[in-house]
Computed example of a mutant assay.
Amino acid sequence: MSVYIIAEAGVNHNGSIEIAKEMVDSAKAAGADCIKFQTFVSKNIVSKNAKKAEYQQQNTAANESQLEMLKKLELSFEEFIELNNYCRSKDIEFLSTGFDFDSIDFLSSLNMKRWKIPSGEITNLPYLIKIAKLNKPIILSTGMSTMEEIKDALEVLVKYGAGEITVLHCTTEYPTPYVDVNLSAMNTIKQELNVPVGYSDHTKGIHISIAAVARGATVIEKHFTLNRKMEGPDHKASLEPIELKEMVNAIRNTEVAIGDGNKIPAGSELKNIVIARKSIVANRCIKKGEAFTEENITVKRPGNGISPMKWFEVIGNIANRDFEEDELIDL
């Protein structure tokens, strides 16, 4: 089964349905399986006094609250209906994270194939129950979480009817410093919780996502933008379209390269065995009736004669004919 690649548009449309549609086109052109947005009613998810995160303060207007920032990034439910239809017309899966109950109820009416729970909601019990009761497959991000918190969330989701759950290792910092990536935690989650795992990547560049695939990630989520120079909280930690395409191609190549684990000669290298390996050959002219010794035989290319692994089986045998120097020995 191929790695499921989510192109995370998030709020990088800056509240514009037209930019959102351009992002759909870019995600499709890059070869992503899915484009994911964020659906929310600003006043339902953040209070008037909530401060912005440090990275949000650095990348947006300094004198606005988190509520004011989010309001500018909000798309209406009607616009999400339009986006869902647009994704269908472009043959790419539409996915959006609902951040509040009104948004979840709305997104449920769109009959999405799966649901994505963001890292910030992993300790939100009523939220987890509501998502679980939709009885759909779930992708759960785990930024800022301990193993105990992940276990607690999974217990709730399973208890209330969730479908298959894929757990994404994640670090909630934009961009994530490489020292904080800790890809090994992805394998710990898989081993301890016996669930499919993936990686939600907030690092710069594409190579950490590729490394995650090599370590067994079945889902990769990566933020992208049309232009990193755009104003907004997430643009600077996002890929541009050409980079997204490079990431998708690299992931597809990596998953093919992982193979089935059986150590046998690859089809492409079979033709090189006779060229690269060696055989037992005459080290000098050998006369019929002469015994093969360590002085009159040696090992040289090509590898289409007796294998050097049979060296001691050849030593002491009698030549059944004359051999020229470098001629393949036969018994």
Rank of each mutant, 00 (worst) to 15 (best):
E79C: 00
D234V: 03
M247I: 09
V46Q: 03
K287Y: 05
D100S: 05
S184K: 12
E74K: 11
A53P: 01
E295R: 01
A62K: 12
T39S: 15
I210P: 01
A32P: 09
E246W: 11
G232D: 07
V11W: 04
I273Y: 15
I117M: 00
A266E: 15
L328Q: 05
L331W: 13
L157V: 07
F224A: 06
A29N: 13
P177D: 00
I81P: 00
L125H: 12
R114A: 07
D100R: 06
E64P: 03
I19Q: 12
N135V: 05
N249H: 10
K245E: 15
L244V: 11
K229S: 12
S209C: 14
N317T: 13
G198F: 01
L73W: 04
I264D: 05
F37T: 12
F292P: 04
A29K: 15
S47H: 10
N49F: 14
A7E: 01
D330F: 06
M69I: 09
A27W: 00
E164F: 01
S238Y: 15
I264F: 09
A282F: 11
A29C: 03
K159F: 08
L168D: 00
L134K: 13
G316V: 03
L140G: 02
D33G: 12
G305D: 04
K133Y: 08
N14A: 14
K151A: 07
T123A: 11
V197S: 01
T166S: 14
V181K: 02
E221Y: 09
T188F: 02
G267Q: 06
E173F: 05
E255Y: 03
K28L: 12
P118K: 11
V299N: 07
N304K: 08
S109L: 12
Y86F: 09
